[in-house]
Nucleic acid binder design. Structure first.
Length: 580
RNA sequence: UGGACCAUGGUGUAAUGGUAACACUACAGGUUUUGGUUCUGUCAUUAUGGGUUCGAGUCCCGUUGGUCCAACCA
């Protein structure tokens, strides 16, 4: 009894960040508060990699009773746009998360400016007037130390005046930058006098023309976290080298705020986890932008895109995405995840969620020769055998039916147990039929019509239906179904790691962007089938309905769909053990 | 060739110095009015060589392999 109880209570294992948060909370760090933030830059649509970060940032807040703010990291007006803000909000909400406050890095522009001025006054920062080339050359390399800028020790008043000028709108971009005075010989490249401010002279979509000089990421993120009250600033592994700088700027801003050393534990801390890599998938925003601009895909929400809106349109539920993310976990190992894991998560979720309907993608006609012409029957079929409470709907049966072309074989092999001459097959939810013959095109040999007789005593649900019949097929009444457009998808890429393949191709052939991508694009990533049929009931379902075309796969009602012209996207096929 | 980080089945994750566990994939079989679902079974000398220890996937040293860092991007 005791033993079975302890095994039944599966001990939930926390990932390393959750464990850290639990420990910090127990130790009373930051007054025992937990606050996180999800900080996207509004310069593109969120993708599945962001979903992993969202699940972490919002997930730990929910799990440990904290809050997670949504913060737009809008420090670079040349790349950002309001269009993306709404899309980001919508995607997060669709995934099922709620933020505490909606904030913007630009909310802190004034405070950041004042802080920067203090940095200059205390000798922590200086204005450098060299060209970017000169600065890059002085930076050194990872193996050789950098050298100091000739402007490094210029008078404070000079820097102060130039900093004002940087923001005046009268200075050309590139003429001057504000740098932190740290250590040009540091083994951490980010410590070699990092840039704090640059002049852009660009209006900002939120602050208008108030600013002409804008702060850099490193001079914004930790301070924003601090000013906002973030305790755990969680990001991906590529920011590990930034952590030391993050901590230093937090030290400085605490000093500026007079918070010094007396409140040593009151500060945001950065933690990093591995970002999501998927094989056969290209994730970077830059590259996704190229795909949309070049028309390789039909927009950000194309069902082949790894964007959240694309995956949604493909037919994934939020729960299936979260289930996938949960299954891959959070570590510090740079993993390349198999898309098969993502598809498995979709199948597991959709099996419980999807409404079963009949669709015939490659139709061939079956005539039930002993079924009276003009007669029809409304047969009741279950919506979801996994959830009987979801009820039933009706499908019409008649003398002339469509079945899948590959569900019939004139000359079957031993492993084939669907329809073939001289054998009984069950039509799911209807009758057992006996195939009596078929008509083939004399020239091509293609099967044009199949003839069957039905057993009137074998109607589904009656005792006569209970005899063993090996094959069960789905079907549609020719006169009672509607033509449908079915969009079938495959991976966009033909190679496991398109990012590396493209990089390699760029190097070898001296081309960039779309030209380096083309060799690796799958020409069959989208195939549109306009000769399919679905039952009428399915054609009238609302957009984004989760469906299973029985015996085929999971499909989703596309937003383009209308009852007159239904359109479906293939999400993922059913597991198929045919041909074993 | 500087620094930081990483390495457990085909893939991903767990094991917090004490019986290498789980999910997915693959394969074999049972059930089934979806060749789905479900159920059962099979698949690892923890990259590698040393060391510490009664005991090492875990700690230490070396080797090998991988990731990240030299944007006026985030």
């Amino acid at each position: 009894m005791c033993a079975s109880e302890s095994t039944a209570e599966k001990k939930e294992t926390l990932n390393f960040i959750e464990q850290k948060i639990k420990d910090d909370l127990a130790a009373g760090l930051n007054g025992g508060r937990l606050q996180t933030r999800f900080p996207p830059e509004p310069n593109g649509y969120l993708h599945i990699g962001h979903a992993k970060a969202i699940a972490m940032d919002f997930g730990v807040a929910r799990k440990f009773g904290g809050v997670c703010n949504l913060r737009m990291d809008d420090t670079n007006p040349q790349k950002e746009d309001m269009e993306y803000v709404k899309a980001i909000e919508r995607d997060i909400e669709w995934l099922g998360f709620k933020w505490g406050k909606m904030v913007y890095a630009s909310d802190y522009f004034q405070e950041l400016w004042d802080f920067a001025v203090w940095c200059i006054k205390t000798g922590k920062a200086y204005v450098d007037e060299q060209t970017s080339e000169q600065i890059a050359a002085q930076k050194g390399t990872p193996t050789t130390p950098g050298t100091n800028s000739p402007y490094r020790d210029r008078p404070i008043e000079e820097s102060l005046a130039l900093f004002e000028e940087m923001n005046s709108g009268n200075m050309e971009p590139g003429k001057a930058i504000l740098r932190a005075k740290i250590d040009m010989a540091s083994s951490n490249m980010h410590f070699r006098d990092p840039i704090m401010y640059r002049v852009l002279n660009l209006p900002h979509w939120r602050t208008g023309t108030a600013w002409n000089a804008y702060p850099m990421y490193d001079f914004t993120h930790g301070q924003s976290d601090y000013l906002e009250g973030v305790t755990h600033s969680i990001c991906t592994l590529e920011f590990v080298p930034h952590r030391e700088l993050y901590d230093l700027f937090v030290d400085w801003i605490k000093e500026w705020k007079g918070e010094g050393d007396n409140l040593g534990d009151n500060r945001p801390r950065q933690f990093e986890f591995n970002k999501l890599n998927l094989n056969y998938t290209l994730m970077s925003k830059r590259n996704l932008l190229i795909l949309t601009k070049e028309g390789v895909v039909n927009g950000w929400d194309d069902p082949r895109m790894p964007t959240i809106c694309g995956i949604r349109r493909r037919g994934y539920s939020p729960e299936s995405i979260l289930r996938f993310i949960d299954s891959i976990g959070y570590t510090t190992f740079d993993a390349l995840n198999d898309v098969k894991l993502m598809e498995a998560a979709a199948r597991a979720d959709l099996n419980e969620r999807a409404t079963r309907v009949s669709a015939v993608l490659d139709p061939v006609k079956v005539i039930i020769t002993n079924y009276p012409e003009g007669q029809t029957e409304e047969l009741e079929v279950v919506n979801n055998p996994e959830r009987p409470e979801e009820g039933t709907h009706y499908i019409t049966f008649s003398r002339e039916l469509w079945i899948e072309r590959d569900d019939f074989k004139a000359e079957p092999d031993k492993k084939f147990f669907r329809m073939c001459p001289g054998k009984e097959t069950r039509l799911k939810g209807a009758y057992i039929v006996d195939c009596t013959g078929y008509k083939a095109n004399p020239v091509t040999g293609d099967v044009e019509e199949i003839y069957c007789t039905y057993d009137p005593d074998s109607k589904a649900g009656t005792p006569g239906a209970s005899r063993k019949v090996k094959g069960t097929l789905h079907w549609l009444s020719c006169a009672h179904c509607v033509p449908a457009e079915v969009r079938n998808y495959e991976c966009l890429w033909t190679c496991e790691n398109p990012r590396d393949a493209i990089k390699q191709y760029e190097k070898e052939h001296g081309v960039r962007g779309i030209d380096a991508m083309r060799p690796f694009l799958n020409p069959n990533s989208l195939s549109v089938n306009t000769s399919a049929f679905v039952e009428k009931w399915a054609a009238e379902l609302p957009e984004f309905s989760y469906l299973q075309f029985q015996r085929i796969g999971y499909y989703n009602v596309d937003p383009d769909s209308t009852p007159e012209h239904p359109v479906f996207n293939s999400t993922v096929g059913l597991k198929d053990s045919k041909g074993k």
